[in-house]
Design a protein around this nucleic acid. Structure first.
Lengths: 227, 227
DNA sequence: ATTCTATCATACCGGTCGGTATGGTAAGAT
DNA sequence: ATCTTACCATACCGACCGGTATGATAGAAT
């Protein structure tokens, strides 16, 4: 369909580097300094381009140009456009999660403080235009690249949900009948706010202060305090 | 950028039909039976194709083929690809809203019943694969076509929010300090559930029963009952 | 009977796509 | 000094893109 040239349609091929790695014996030989630099340039340019134009909209020519690299260099590091996209988006996904809720300082704070912290983290992240584009791309390409959506779910959605559930269960001041459901109410509200405000341009059309939302959520938590 | 051939780059042109309309005198002459039929075929095929492949991914050739029509016929009804996309997505947007919450039967029901009904409506709508694709497309193309996101906000998001707010204010059984914030908690939760379950494939990876969510939300409402 | 309109079929346009081929250059390893 | 490696520049490939041109056909309106 369309413009996809399946010159290499079948028989999974490997990028040049992978082929080399295959039959020079196992050495793991780390790429040379400059080679790793080129690779980093490619990844950076690819990220920028894919997040801006989407998978179909981005062209390898543009990526090469932005990376300051010749197209062949890309194809010696990555098998094809799909591989590049997958690799780049996947690594961004895990990058995001790894600098996230690793803050151990909130370990024994009261539940509302923990929830506020989580909400703040999500909200702050959506101040970064790149993260907004990341979310849009993730959603927009979720059908073409379901593995990426799964990765996102595994590394981001599930952990934050279980974190909340765990915190709810590990305290006795507030009582919830269905902690998992409440966790979803909480992050659903925050995430939908980000989506609506930043991606669907609600910020300009139907602006709403996130603080009111978080306050409302915390007020709801307070209603669950055991008498 | 990329493959967009701006053969007609500047000077806004009109589709053939629009030109004709301009200087045959005002008649509004309704298109012939078969002409309207062709047009409907085109719209249907364009919808299917755009929702499936996205704007960049869909090709006019494919749309024509699926519509059982020659490419020129499309270009006599629509100015260009962008116009077709805009028109088709916009009309789907307003279609959706118009068969939605027009049910006047819930006018004087208690608040929980009203909210349940709204949640059910949203959830039911996301059982339709086409609507899921619609939402994904709306989000995915929100940067390229912000007017569509605005239309969606105006016709869908805002009305359903104000409906809830209005209902909250028009009763005295439940007391909310910030009705608007609660409305956003409510629909945020439901919408995010649909997004997570159907678009990000949570249905297969992290399934969750919507009923628990709605029950949780109604339970929260119940906590707001006056004394 | 003639004119007009909307469609058809087919072919074309310039341009971009993803991806490859060829051949050259500079640096580091042997 | 030779070889290898990673890159460069340029040009090419076939396919497909959005969009147009030409000319034929068939139905309805005059």
């Amino acid at each position: 369909m369309k413009k996809s040239n399946d010159t290499k349609a079948n028989a999974p091929t490997k990028s040049r580097r992978e082929i080399k790695k295959f039959w020079t014996d196992e050495g793991e030989q780390e790429l040379s300094e400059t080679s790793r630099k080129k690779r980093a340039q490619i990844i950076e340019a690819a990220l920028e381009t894919f997040l801006q134009l989407g998978y179909e909209g981005a062209s390898m020519n543009l990526v090469a140009e932005r990376a300051g690299v010749i197209k062949q260099t890309i194809y010696s590091h990555f098998q094809d456009k799909q591989s590049l996209f997958r690799e780049v988006i996947a690594s961004l996904t895990v990058d995001y999660v790894q600098n996230a809720l690793q803050e151990p300082e909130l370990i024994n704070k009261p539940l509302p403080a923990v929830l506020r912290k989580i909400a703040e983290t999500i909200l702050a992240r959506h101040q970064d235009p790149r993260h907004i584009r990341f979310v849009r791309t993730m959603i927009g390409e979720a059908e073409r690249f379901p593995e990426l959506a799964k990765l996102f779910t595994d590394t981001t959605v599930r952990p934050v949900l279980s974190l909340i559930v765990e915190r709810i269960k590990n305290q006795t001041i507030y009582k919830f009948d269905d902690p998992e459901a409440f966790a979803r109410v909480f992050i659903g509200t925050v995430v939908n706010h980000c989506l609506q405000q930043h991606i669907l341009h609600g910020k300009e059309l139907l602006p709403f202060d996130a603080t009111r939302l978080v306050d409302e959520l915390v007020a709801i938590v307070e209603l669950h305090r055991v008498s």
